[in-house]
Design a binder for these strands. Structure first.
Lengths: 149, 149
DNA sequence: CTTAAATAAGTAATTCATTACCAAAATTAC
DNA sequence: GTAATTTTGGTAATGAATTACTTATTTAAG
């Protein structure tokens, strides 16, 4: 049961949280709400959201009725920015062996890592929060089901 | 300094070792040789090679002049098989959140994980050890440089 | 048969991501 | 201004994956 992609629970929480907050633009969203929605521990959610605040993607207010809100338009926040806010800048690491010199000079496998990483980065860059504002929206699904029948 | 791809040092050692052994088809290759070539600890290399023997990709002989050798033709061993021998069967995990229910029903991000994983798996499937028998070969490089100049 | 070389296998140590907890600071409502 | 709610930030505990080490077993050569 191995996973090819390095997507940690931290990043997953960040992605889902950002969409949840984007969709609730009217009112602020608090840690407990996101924790329940995502089924993740509130301690962990809090840590992730704090990071997103520090990196400027979210704003926050303490106290009753406080919570988190977007500081930019959904169309201006890419998945890549969210990923890098949590995990740090992505490096396209040529030889998967993190050594300076690969046993084969130019690493035999750098084609692989470079191609796959570039592909993934491109995907993350091209998708903004805007893409997820209405995706899997219940009312829309019902509507389209009606139309289909 | 984050990495998008989940390629552990274990897999990297396995990939490089298999190519080194494939290229030395005449004589058996021992742990120390591979450890030096790859700059990895011989303890770790030994563990990886043992796994590859158990999975039938390599044969081994103990004692002086012993070592490891391929049990199949290079063209018949894909990178995917090597990867899975070390890490286990790859799962294409839909929602990156490993929970049964994604907060959005059908996960918003399953398109991403499925697409990227499939892309990567395809690459690994299509590349066999044969592709690496002569890649970055010194003599060939010199030759092509001459031709280019 | 003895010695040396090499793999095999089991166990220990380390690292890293995640989770848990707690006290402090801020804000709102009454 | 008091109490309740909520984020903040620091630190500790956990658990899983990875890496390191040690001893046993096998084999070949002289």
């Amino acid at each position: 049961m191995a996973k090819l992609l390095n997507i940690t629970e931290a990043v997953t929480i960040a992605l889902h949280s950002m969409v949840i907050i984007a969709r609730n633009d009217s009112k602020q969203v608090n840690v407990n709400y996101i924790s329940e929605k995502t089924g993740s521990s509130k301690y962990h959610v809090a840590k992730i959201l704090q990071k997103l605040v520090k990196d400027g993607f979210l704003g926050s207010h303490r106290g009753p009725a406080g919570g988190f809100y977007l500081t930019h338009e959904p169309a201006e926040i890419s998945l890549l920015e969210i990923y890098e806010a949590i995990e740090g800048k992505i490096i396209n690491s040529k030889c998967p062996m993190n050594k300076d010199k690969c046993p084969f000079g130019d690493c035999l496998f750098e084609d692989m890592t470079i191609k796959m990483t570039e592909e993934f980065v491109k995907y993350l860059q091209e998708h903004t929060l805007q893409h997820y504002m209405h995706k899997n929206d219940q009312s829309r699904n019902l509507k389209s089901k009606k139309e289909a029948s």
